[in-house]
Simulated assay, not measured.
Amino acid sequence: MPTIWTDVDPGAYLDAVTPAVRRRDADTLRDLMERVTGEPPRMFGASIVGFGEYHYEYASGRSGDAPAIAFAPRKAATTIYLPDGVGAHEERLAALGPHTTGVGCLYLKDLERVDLAVLEQILRTSWAAVTSGTFGQRARES
C-alpha cells in the first residue's frame, strides 16, 4: 500500500515558515498535536504537517487515506484540518477566540489570541472521532 506521506522533513519545513508569527504558531501546534496524538509530525504533500492517519470511504465509493489531524501554516492564517468537520465542535469554537472556519478547516491568525486549552479539547475530540475506526464521512456531513 502506498504511503500518503512525503520525505520532506517537517522540522526543516517549519523552520523556514514565514512570517514569524506563523512559525511561532507552527511550533506550538506541532507540540500540541504531537501531545494529543502521540504521533510524530510527518509531511502530507508539500505544506501540510500531519499526525496519524485514517482511511475514509464515502457512499459514492471514493476512498483513500489522509492525516487524522493536520495543520498548514499559510501566510494569511494557519489552517487546522478537522476531518470530522467544524460542526462537530460548535460549542467549543464559540469559546475558542478569534477564528474563521470552512467545512473542515479552522483558520487562526494568532494562537496567542485563542484559548489553547479549548483548542486542545477540539483536537482531542476530533482525533478520537477520526481514529475510532468507524469514521468515514465527509466533513460537510458532520
Rank of each mutant, 00 (worst) to 15 (best):
residue 1 M to L: 05
residue 2 P to A: 03
residue 2 P to E: 07
residue 3 T to A: 09
residue 5 W to R: 04
residue 6 T to P: 02
residue 7 D to F: 10
residue 8 V to Q: 13
residue 8 V to H: 12
residue 8 V to N: 12
residue 9 D to E: 06
residue 11 G to W: 11
residue 11 G to E: 15
residue 11 G to C: 06
residue 13 Y to M: 05
residue 14 L to R: 13
residue 14 L to E: 02
residue 15 D to P: 03
residue 15 D to V: 00
residue 15 D to I: 02
residue 21 V to Q: 09
residue 22 R to G: 01
residue 22 R to A: 00
residue 22 R to L: 03
residue 22 R to W: 09
residue 24 R to T: 08
residue 25 D to L: 00
residue 27 D to Y: 12
residue 27 D to W: 12
residue 29 L to Y: 00
residue 31 D to S: 14
residue 32 L to C: 06
residue 34 E to G: 13
residue 35 R to W: 13
residue 35 R to L: 13
residue 38 G to Q: 08
residue 38 G to T: 01
residue 39 E to I: 09
residue 40 P to W: 06
residue 41 P to K: 12
residue 42 R to H: 12
residue 44 F to G: 05
residue 47 S to T: 14
residue 47 S to L: 04
residue 49 V to M: 03
residue 52 G to A: 09
residue 53 E to I: 01
residue 55 H to R: 14
residue 55 H to W: 08
residue 55 H to T: 15
residue 57 E to F: 05
residue 60 S to V: 01
residue 62 R to H: 13
residue 67 P to K: 01
residue 68 A to N: 03
residue 70 A to R: 05
residue 70 A to D: 08
residue 72 A to K: 00
residue 74 R to N: 07
residue 80 I to W: 06
residue 81 Y to A: 11
residue 84 D to F: 06
residue 84 D to N: 15
residue 86 V to I: 13
residue 89 H to T: 00
residue 91 E to T: 14
residue 91 E to I: 12
residue 92 R to Y: 13
residue 92 R to P: 06
residue 96 L to A: 07
residue 97 G to L: 08
residue 97 G to R: 04
residue 101 T to F: 03
residue 101 T to G: 03
residue 101 T to R: 10
residue 102 G to R: 04
residue 107 Y to I: 08
residue 109 K to S: 14
residue 109 K to L: 09
residue 111 L to D: 01
residue 113 R to Y: 07
residue 114 V to H: 08
residue 114 V to I: 15
residue 114 V to R: 06
residue 115 D to P: 02
residue 116 L to E: 10
residue 116 L to Y: 06
residue 118 V to Q: 11
residue 119 L to S: 02
residue 119 L to M: 09
residue 120 E to C: 08
residue 121 Q to P: 11
residue 121 Q to V: 05
residue 126 S to K: 10
residue 127 W to K: 02
residue 127 W to L: 03
residue 128 A to K: 14
residue 128 A to Q: 14
residue 129 A to E: 08
residue 130 V to N: 01
residue 131 T to V: 05
residue 136 G to V: 09
residue 136 G to T: 09
residue 138 R to K: 15
residue 139 A to L: 07
residue 140 R to K: 14
